[in-house]
Measured scan of single mutants.
Amino acid sequence: LVRYRTISKIPQITLNFVDLKGDPFLASPTSDREIIAPKIKERTHNVTEKVTQVLSLGADVLPEYKLQAPRIHRWTILHYSPFKAVWDWLILLLVIYTAVFTPYSAAFLLKETEEGPPATECGYACQPLAVVDLIVDIMFIVDILINFRTTYVNANEEVVSHPGRIAVHYFKGWFLIDMVAAIPFDLLIFGSGSEELIGLLKTARLLRLVRVARKLDRYSEYGAAVLFLLMCTFALIAHWLACIWYAIGNMEQPHMDSRIGWLHNLGDQIGKPYNSSGLGGPSIKDKYVTALYFTFSSLTSVGFGNVSPNTNSEKIFSICVMLIGSLMYASIFGNVSAIIQRLYSGTARYHTQMLRVREFIRFHQIPNPLRQRLEEYFQHAWSYTNGIDMNAVLKGFPECLQADICLHLNRSLLQHCKPFRGATKGCLRALAMKFKTTHAPPGDTLVHAGDLLTALYFISRGSIEILRGDVVVAILGKNDIFGEPLNLYARPGKSNGDVRALTYCDLHKIHR
């Protein structure tokens, strides 16, 4: 019993810090008490220290592992850092350059016999395009090294910054494609005289377009951006097909006994025919423009016929181009109408809503002055909100995010209106959640004399007048207030005048 009563005193000691020596009952000389009392004092002292730490809000209350900052290894790049964003855009520009100039170089340097010394005699450094290609190869190699040090988000939505895990993730992902696209074939085969082989191998750079397509997928929600990307894709495919079309004609031209190829026909049409040795002929500019003209006309199913396939190889390629053109029509131009419709969806919704308003007016036989006010209010409210119901949009977000959005939407009023000066951010967040926005066209009466005042109004834009009878008592403008002081009276009061809008007004109100 003594032991039980001794232990039962522990909660009292913990909360009230009572010393055991003052209790005459606990001072009985028993061996059990002498053993338990020192333990009680020690526990009391420890609990006292913990309570003191909690009340003082000291940093040592938290466990040590929670006080440590997340460790980022040296030379690790955050995937959302500004440097990584700028670097990704730079790589994107280099990939676009590669997609345009690599097929052009591979096709127009394929057994090209233009006048001038061969590239091997001039030297590697004197070729501007080769120098640019070398810079692109170096940048792609540097990009691989950067990807080995860039964080990523795993399946659990955690940012991984450990170098080993980053390397394994990159090896399992895009490393092989990036490595093949970054191989400097110019340096590996330079001086061997195989410019045709170098041009063909350099087309491996186009593998990076797969990554670019995935990154550009984030802009699919913007109709104008999608339309622009589709047109660029169409032009890029036409450019690639033009390079292939020229390569076919250029390879067949020296081996044909009869002059029936499209390059021969082009030379005869523009007065620059090929001679018996295969030299001469149109310039590279004429060849490229004509090839691009043929691919565009074939892809769009126009086909004027002034550039036509004559050999079997050219006919087979033309059939493939027609098939590609039909697929592009289905996948690209078939979506253009939907994209344009999405661009004008706001206008369509406006006309639909206006039609419903006019049908309501016609069905209920609203008189002319009231009908005009109804239409003007709808037009003004639509121009202010673009038909978007803010309350319906915010309803799907958590309250903390709703408060931040409301604070942002009402920031101008909260910053410049005098009653809100000096208020804490928590108070402003709470008030912003209570605001209701209303609009009024010129001549609209917001409050009639004798109406119950259940709200306090803040003028965000425009001006109003307060009338008693036919006498203008006051004219209020931006950041002015009218209405009933909230919670100042037990019952809502009545208006002693009319409140009429002089201009288009936007008002925020808080109800009782």
Rank of each mutant, 00 (worst) to 15 (best):
Q68E: 06
S412H: 13
A99L: 01
I141E: 03
R342Y: 13
S105W: 11
F171H: 01
Y293N: 01
G173A: 04
I146N: 01
C427Q: 10
A440F: 10
R259Q: 13
I339N: 04
M256P: 11
L109A: 06
P282L: 01
A181Q: 04
R208T: 10
A181R: 01
Y274L: 03
T300Q: 01
P184V: 01
C126H: 01
L230D: 04
P441G: 09
H364W: 05
W75V: 04
V142E: 01
P367E: 15
L227A: 05
A69E: 12
V95R: 03
T311K: 01
L197D: 03
L134G: 03
S301D: 01
E314Q: 03
L188D: 09
L374K: 01
H239W: 01
R358V: 01
Q415C: 06
A348K: 08
S297Y: 01
N306M: 01
G164I: 14
N275C: 01
H239Q: 01
N154I: 10
A247N: 01
Y124N: 04
Q68D: 05
K272Y: 01
H264G: 01
P184M: 01
N275D: 04
K84C: 06
A155D: 10
A119W: 01
Y274R: 03
F378C: 13
I260P: 03
A155G: 14
G164M: 14
T300M: 04
F190T: 13
K172I: 04
R74G: 12
L216Y: 05
N391L: 12
L414I: 09
T295I: 11
D286V: 01
Y124L: 14
M179G: 11
H79P: 02
V289F: 01
L431M: 11
F296M: 13
S161I: 11
P163L: 05
S345C: 03
A330Y: 04
F234H: 01
G426R: 03
S326C: 05
W174Q: 04
L236S: 01
S220I: 09
D178W: 01
H351Y: 13
G164D: 05
L200E: 02
K285M: 13
L90M: 10
P118T: 15
I339A: 03
A238I: 04
A155R: 13
G281D: 01
L94T: 14
L206T: 05
N368W: 06
N310S: 05
L401Q: 01
R205A: 04
I72A: 14
Q402H: 03
Y288T: 01
H73G: 14
L129R: 05
I198M: 07
V180G: 11
F363G: 01
F140P: 01
E114P: 15
L355M: 12
L206M: 08
H351E: 03
W75G: 07
S331F: 11
A107K: 01
N312I: 03
Y80V: 09
T311L: 01
L236C: 01
L216N: 04
P82C: 15
L209C: 05
L78H: 04
R342K: 04
P398K: 01
Y170I: 01
F234P: 01
S331D: 01
L401W: 01
A291P: 01
D178C: 01
C232I: 04
G443E: 01
I260A: 03
V142Q: 03
F190H: 09
A155W: 09
P117F: 06
S308M: 01
W75K: 04
N368E: 08
F140E: 01
I198L: 13
Y222Q: 06
I244R: 01
P184C: 01
Y274M: 01
S412C: 07
P369L: 03
Q415R: 07
L299Y: 01
E376S: 12
G281S: 01
V336P: 03
M179T: 13
T347M: 08
L109W: 03
V336R: 02
N275V: 01
K202A: 01
L93T: 05
G249F: 03
C243W: 01
D404Y: 01
V160T: 06
R259W: 01
E359F: 02
N386L: 07
P369C: 04
P117I: 14
E376L: 11
K172C: 09
T347E: 12
D444A: 09
E64D: 10
L279C: 13
P70H: 15
I339R: 03
A392S: 08
A381I: 08
Y384P: 03
W240R: 01
H448E: 07
T102S: 01
P254H: 03
P254Q: 15
E314R: 01
S220Y: 10
F171N: 01
L201T: 05
A440T: 09
S220P: 05
L109H: 15
V86S: 04
A348V: 13
F101W: 15
K215E: 04
A225D: 01
S301F: 06
V336A: 01
E64F: 01
D133R: 01
H239T: 01
I72D: 14
P254V: 14
M139N: 01
Y274C: 01
Y80W: 04
R211T: 01
G223I: 03
R349M: 05
T120V: 07
R371S: 10
M139Q: 02
L374C: 10
M179S: 12
E112P: 14
R214H: 08
M322S: 02
E221R: 13
I183M: 04
F397P: 01
A238Y: 01
A106Q: 15
I237S: 04
L206R: 01
E157C: 14
S258Q: 13
G280M: 01
I91G: 01
T203R: 01
F294K: 01
I361P: 01
F420T: 01
N306Y: 01
I332Q: 03
V226P: 06
F83I: 05
V160R: 01
A155Q: 07
Q127W: 01
P282M: 03
A392Q: 13
E157R: 14
G199F: 01
L241Q: 01
S258C: 03
I189F: 14
P82Y: 15
A125V: 07
G280K: 01
A213M: 05
N250R: 14
V302E: 01
P82R: 05
L266S: 01
V289C: 01
A107L: 01
A225H: 04
F378R: 04
L431G: 02
T98Q: 01
P118V: 07
I244N: 01
H79N: 02
V100K: 01
R349A: 14
L206C: 05
S337R: 06
E115A: 13
I260E: 03
W75Q: 01
Y293L: 05
P163M: 05
F190D: 14
I270E: 01
V168C: 11
Y344T: 07
E157T: 11
P309S: 01
D137E: 15
P163C: 05
P282I: 01
F234E: 14
S258V: 09
L292P: 01
Q415E: 12
R349P: 04
N312D: 01
N386E: 04
N368D: 08
L401P: 01
S331C: 08
C427S: 05
G193Q: 13
L355S: 14
N312V: 03
I141A: 09
T150M: 01
Y80A: 08
A238D: 01
A167W: 01
W240Q: 01
G396W: 11
Q269P: 01
T352S: 10
T438R: 08
Q68I: 06
L201Y: 01
S276V: 04
R421C: 13
S297V: 01
Y222T: 05
G191D: 04
V336N: 03
P441M: 09
E314K: 01
F435P: 02
G426N: 04
Y288Q: 01
A247Y: 13
R349L: 06
V289M: 01
I388A: 04
A238C: 03
V212N: 06
A155N: 11
S326Q: 07
E121L: 09
A392P: 03
M256N: 15
Q372D: 15
F234V: 04
F378K: 04
D143Y: 01
I270T: 03
